[in-house]
Amino acid sequence: MSKTPLHFTLNGRAFDLEVEPRRTLIDVIRDDCGFTGTHAGCEHGVCGACTIIVNGETVRSCLMFGFQAEGATIRTVESLSQGGPLHPLQEAFVEHHALQCGFCTPGFLMLAVGLLEENPDMDEAAMRDALSSNLCRCTGYENILKAVKDGAQRMKASHD
């Protein structure tokens, strides 16, 4: 199968790849780039576990082909703290027990980061609606909502 060249920046690193056009972006990120923090929960765009940020927009990486990320700037969960102190949302997730198995967590984190970067003043109703985009099977969501509400405040404080 013929391959197509693919260049993008992932978590601050430039990648210069050749991939089959049919490879999904999540597979490219996980298998070709080695960032396995992004998880494939359904591979048909419903569960949101694979949510990442491409050119500032939250997207589902299972619903993009790798080739569609040509020239893009991509951020995944690994970008949030890069080995340093936890991102305010990561802290909030830990403190509010917003994860159990942790499989859906990277998707929720990137969804929340994307939403709050776009609208730091999101109200609770808007958060509820937006966070309903992703599935969690362990927590019952209540603690995720609490963590995102608290994380939003922490993100604002860290910008002050």
């Binding site: 396995t36 949030l80 967590t105």
Partner: peptide, 19 residues
């Protein structure tokens, strides 16, 4: 107490079988 499990999981450093 907050969980011992959480730091790698929130950093995307968890290791699930597909990883």
């Amino acid at each position: 107490l907050t969980r011992l499990e959480d730091p790698p999981l929130v950093r995307g450093k968890g290791r699930f079988v597909a990883d």
